Simulated assay, not measured.
Amino acid sequence: MLKQLFSRRRKNRYGWFGDYTSWEKVREKAAGYDSNVILERTTNALLKVKLGEAVYERDSVLFDKKVYPYPLMAYLSLSRNLKKQPLNILDFGGSLGSTYYQLREILTPDVCASYNVVEQEHYVTSGNANFANDTLKFYRSIDACLAEKEIDFVLLSSSVQYLEQPHPFLEKLAGYNFDFILFDRTAFNKQSFDRLTLQIVPPEIYPASYPAWFFHEEFFLSHFSGMYKVAAEFSSYVEGEAVMYIDNKPSGADKGFYLINRTIHA
């Protein structure tokens, strides 16, 4: 929803702006993602979905009709077939389980053994209090999750671009030796280097702004070249994210990649 709104708006004060040289310079202008306002709105919206009072939530916004992430659904099914057993899924930056609730009718016990969200501490607290169940769990780090679960499939949807140090994280992610990794709704630009911007959210969603990366695709994928093969590349399932605007100019796109560990699945 965020990027759909931003992508369609031209010459206004909401969206992605700038080409910053450091995270600190962006933070000077930002009111961060750890805002309690965002958590409160997301909690209230997703509780309506959980209770059957709404159909679908994305980025704290409620919808009366689901938009399905068909690439994710297809590659979850393929991964389950390759693994030949239900998957233990880790959703990095998965909010309060938005994707879990979006897909819960297909995340049957035959497909999903467990669904584990890694998030910021205040999200984990709210998630465990309001949304956790026998399948859905919340953790403060990948390592905390791995202490309890053996993860097969990692989902990173619209999350890596909000990390201060994304490349050390990606290098570490590759080193975990997971069977499958799927990036979705990840921002890439048309330049030969990463671009750091300030994302300003329309107040009708929530009042916030924060740093956001647009990645250089080749460098991004280079972290995984030794162990993984890129089995698929796909556009974002969200309308309006095929073209992303920075400073009101078309500058990139949200897209995804499905990676298979070639040392496990030759």
Rank of each mutant, 00 (worst) to 15 (best):
L47M: 12
S77V: 08
E121R: 06
L62R: 10
S225G: 00
D143M: 07
D179K: 01
V55Q: 09
E53D: 11
V230A: 06
P166S: 14
L170Q: 01
R41W: 08
Y68L: 13
Y245D: 10
A132F: 14
M73P: 06
Y245M: 09
L62P: 07
K84W: 03
T186V: 03
S236M: 05
R13S: 13
E57H: 07
K65C: 14
K149S: 14
D254S: 14
V243A: 06
D134K: 13
L72N: 03
I260D: 03
Y228W: 13
F178G: 01
Q161D: 02
L155Y: 04
W23H: 14
H122I: 05
H265K: 15
A232E: 10
C145T: 12
L198D: 05
Y115I: 00
G93D: 07
G18M: 14
L103I: 03
T135Y: 02
V26D: 03
K137C: 02
T197D: 09
I200G: 01
Y206A: 11
K83R: 12
A129E: 13
S141D: 06
L72M: 13
N261P: 00
K65F: 12
G94D: 01
I89A: 01
L196H: 04
L87T: 00
L173E: 05
P211H: 09
I38H: 15
K66E: 12
Y100V: 02
D19V: 08
L156K: 00
F63E: 07
P207F: 10
D19N: 15
A74H: 11
F224T: 03
D247G: 05
P202E: 13
V160Y: 00
